[in-house]
Simulated scan of single mutants.
Amino acid sequence: MKINHLTSAEENLMKLFWKLNSFYLKDIMEQHQEPKPHQNTVSTYLKILVEKGYLSTEKEGRIFKYTVMVPFDDYKKFLLKELSNNFFNHSGKEILQFLFNENLISQNDLKDYFDLKIEMKPVKIKEPKLEIANEILNPKKDKKSKDKKKKKKKN
């Protein structure tokens, strides 16, 4: 089954439909939060969502009963794969790194979920080696002076 993209308005209505699973137009009008959209607007969205394959209809007398055809979990998988493909080079590792960097997930979240001992260490930036500067700032002492100090310590 091919899943199509939803507009923001369609997605908001689908959130309600996923809760109801099977419903009539009057159920939507009763359940929708204020300000309630006009019934014709909802009917138009229902028609679009049927065409996109998210809903199916069954005629019962003069009214239609709608049933959700695309489960919420399938839609979430679709969105996550699209996100991965379009923004993270098909890499779960990049997604996870982004979630950590944005503090959307913690190490404890992963430890609890996977029951593993995972320890994330902060990324350290390597400092450039300044050998010439170190030689100038910390000149090497002669071996003779070291030998003299050793002799003095022994005595």
Rank of each mutant, 00 (worst) to 15 (best):
K121P: 03
L99W: 00
I95V: 07
K126F: 11
K141N: 02
E131T: 02
V70S: 08
E131D: 04
K117T: 10
K124E: 10
F100Q: 00
S106H: 03
V70R: 07
L79P: 04
K117V: 07
K111D: 04
P139A: 03
L96H: 01
L110A: 04
N86C: 03
K129H: 09
K117A: 11
Y113K: 10
D115A: 10
D74H: 09
S91K: 02
E119Q: 10
L99P: 05
N103F: 03
K81F: 08
M69N: 06
E127V: 15
L116S: 08
H90R: 09
K140S: 11
N89D: 09
K143G: 06
G92Q: 07
L130E: 05
N108K: 13
F88L: 02
I125C: 08
D142L: 07
N138L: 13
N85G: 03
K111R: 14
L116D: 03
N86L: 12
P71V: 13
L99M: 12
K129C: 05
L96W: 00
K129T: 05
H90V: 01
F100N: 00
V123T: 12
L130F: 08
S84L: 14
D74A: 15
K143S: 02
N86K: 15
L99Q: 00
K81E: 04
P122V: 13
Q107D: 06
V70H: 05
E119M: 06
I125T: 15
Q97A: 13
K111H: 05
Y113V: 08
F72Q: 15
K111W: 03
Q107C: 05
E82R: 15
L83D: 00
F98E: 00
P139T: 11
F78H: 12
F78G: 04
L96M: 12
L116V: 10
L96Y: 00
K117D: 11
F114I: 01
K124R: 15
D115I: 12
L104R: 12
P122H: 10
D112W: 05
E94S: 10
E82Y: 08
N85R: 15
Q97E: 09
N89K: 08
F98L: 00
I132E: 14
K124T: 13
F87Y: 14
S106I: 02
M120A: 10
K126G: 05
K129S: 09
I132L: 09
